[in-house]
Simulated assay, not measured.
Amino acid sequence: MSGWRDKAACRDMDPDLFFPTTSSEERLALKACAQCPAICECARYAAEHDRINGYPLQGVWGGVNRTRRRNRNE
C-alpha cells in the first residue's frame, strides 16, 4: 500500500466492519470513518472507482455507503 491507504484508520481494523449487515453495524463503520485522516481520499477513490477487479464496489468507503454512492452518481 502507499499514499492515503497508509494513513487510513481502517488499515488495522477488521475489514468486516466496513461491510455491515445491520444499521447499528453501519453506524460503527461510519463512526470509524469520521475519525479517519484519509476520509476524503477514500471517498474520492470510491467515487472514481465503481468496480474493483470487475466487481461492484461494496461496503462503506470514505464515510459513504453503497446506496449513497449510487444515488450521488445518478
Rank of each mutant, 00 (worst) to 15 (best):
S2N: 13
S2F: 07
S2Q: 12
S2Y: 03
G3E: 01
G3R: 01
D6T: 12
D6V: 11
A8V: 01
A8G: 04
A9F: 09
C10P: 02
R11T: 01
M13I: 05
P20V: 01
P20G: 02
T21G: 10
T21E: 15
T22R: 03
T22I: 05
T22K: 07
S23D: 13
S24D: 15
E25R: 08
R27M: 10
R27G: 11
L28E: 13
L30A: 02
L30Y: 07
K31D: 09
K31T: 11
C33A: 06
C33E: 02
P37Q: 02
P37S: 04
A38G: 02
I39P: 00
I39A: 07
I39F: 13
C42R: 00
C42W: 03
C42V: 01
Y45E: 04
A46T: 01
A46L: 04
H49R: 09
H49E: 02
R51W: 03
R51N: 10
R51Q: 13
I52N: 09
N53L: 15
G54L: 03
G54T: 05
Y55M: 15
P56S: 06
Q58M: 10
G59K: 04
V60F: 03
V60D: 05
V60I: 14
V60Q: 07
W61S: 03
W61E: 08
W61V: 01
G63Q: 01
V64M: 08
V64I: 11
N65P: 00
N65F: 06
N65Y: 04
R66P: 06
T67S: 12
T67K: 13
R68H: 10
R72E: 15
R72D: 15
N73Q: 15
E74M: 12
E74A: 15
